Simulated scan of single mutants.
Amino acid sequence: MSDRDPFSEIERAFDMLEEQFGVDMGAIPVDVVDEGDAFVVHADLPGYDSDDIDVQLVEDREVTISATSSREQESTDGQYVQRERRQQSLSRSVRLPESVDEAETTASYDNGVLTVRLEKIVHSEGDDGTDIPVN
Rank of each mutant, 00 (worst) to 15 (best):
V58T: 13
E102I: 04
F7G: 00
E74F: 07
H42F: 13
Q87N: 11
I10M: 14
E18D: 09
D51A: 05
I10T: 15
V58S: 06
E98S: 14
D128L: 12
D44I: 09
E74S: 05
R61A: 06
E84P: 01
E125F: 01
M1E: 10
Q20V: 07
D24L: 11
E19K: 02
E125C: 05
V81Y: 03
A43H: 07
V116Q: 12
S2M: 04
D51L: 00
V81L: 14
A38S: 08
I121R: 14
S8N: 12
E98A: 08
L45Q: 09
G26V: 15
T106H: 12
S66E: 11
V63A: 06
D24F: 13
T115M: 09
T106E: 08
I121M: 12
E84F: 10
E74T: 10
F7R: 13
S91Y: 12
Q56W: 01
I132G: 08
D77Y: 03
V32L: 11
I132F: 15
V33L: 07
N135F: 03
R86M: 14
D54A: 05
D131Y: 04
E18P: 03
E62P: 05
N135K: 15
I10V: 15
P97F: 06
R85H: 11
I121C: 08
R4T: 14
I121A: 12
E125N: 10
F39R: 01
F39H: 04
R83Y: 10
I132K: 03
E119S: 06
V134I: 06
I121G: 04
R4D: 01
V113T: 14
S93H: 02
F7I: 01
L90R: 12
T105P: 05
S69E: 04
Q88V: 12
R117W: 01
Q88Y: 02
Q82G: 08
V41S: 03
A27D: 04
P29S: 05
M25F: 10
I121T: 09
Y109G: 09
Y80E: 15
D3C: 10
A107S: 04
S91L: 12
Y80P: 14
T68F: 13
G47K: 07
R95C: 06
Y48V: 00
E102Q: 08
S8L: 14
R71P: 03
A43L: 00
G126K: 13
R12K: 15
D127G: 08
R86I: 15
V30D: 04
T105I: 12
T76E: 15
E102H: 07
V30F: 11
Y48L: 05
G36M: 07
H123S: 12
D51K: 04
E72C: 12
Q79V: 15
S66C: 08
F39S: 02
I10P: 06
L57G: 00
D131C: 05
I132N: 13
R61N: 15
E84N: 10
E19A: 06
K120V: 10
L118H: 06
D110V: 05
S50H: 02
E11H: 00
R85P: 04
S66V: 02
T68M: 09
D110H: 13
Y48W: 06
A103N: 11
R117V: 04
L96T: 06
Q88P: 09
Q56M: 08
S70D: 02
D3H: 10
A38F: 04
Q82H: 11
V122T: 14
G112R: 02
D15C: 11
V55D: 01
D52N: 07
L114S: 06
E9Y: 14
H42G: 00
D101K: 06
